[in-house]
């Protein structure tokens, strides 16, 4: 036996879910704002011989557009202490040589899990100058707490 009030809250509940999914779905598929995840794979034992990771670093790819090719390994980032100008649109292309690491810049939407065997891509536009802290947020071993670097935007 269904009641009017039960129908009411079922409709509202389903409506809320549908609205959430439409907003998120539109952002992901129409605006390209999906979460970082990439299906590209790499042999984790041959990272240093595989392009583009044979030459990690910061590369200018366009007008105030940069690509950072980065290798993560216990317990550091290569390259580290990156510098980019204000307003730079930076795409990070990352992989791990050993275990799963994290790449997070607190206060921004940069937060990616970097797994061995996978190539992870995430981009961000640095509109505010300053010193950004980069931390590994996946426990990766005895030196995990020391795994950090900075991005300087000026």
């Amino acid at each position: 036996m269904q009641h009017r009030l039960e129908e009411m809250w079922m409709i509202v509940s389903v409506g809320i879910l549908v609205v959430f999914m439409i907003i998120i779905g539109y952002q992901t598929f129409a605006m390209g704002m999906g979460p970082p995840s990439h299906s590209e794979t790499i042999d984790p034992q041959k990272v240093e011989e595989t392009a583009p990771f044979d030459e990690p670093g910061v590369f200018e790819t366009g007008e105030n557009k940069y690509e950072v090719v980065m290798i993560l390994q216990s317990f550091g980032f290569t390259p580290s202490n990156i510098e980019v100008p204000v307003g730079a649109e930076v795409e990070f292309v990352m992989t791990s040589k050993d275990v799963t690491h994290g790449f997070q810049v607190p206060g921004t939407n940069i937060n990616a899990m970097v797994m061995p065997g996978h190539i992870q891509k995430i981009s961000h536009t640095f509109d505010e100058p300053g010193n950004y802290l980069v931390i590994c947020n996946e426990y990766c071993g005895i030196g995990h707490q020391a795994m950090s670097t900075t991005i300087t935007v000026k």
Binding site: M1, H3, R4, L5, W9, S13, I16
Partner: peptide, 24 residues
Amino acid sequence: LNNDDEKSLRGTLVSVGFVAAVIV
């Protein structure tokens, strides 16, 4: 009987509405 049932679901509706508000 149904009317009484509906009356007793008022509190449930308010509670569900509260949960929905928290989620939103």
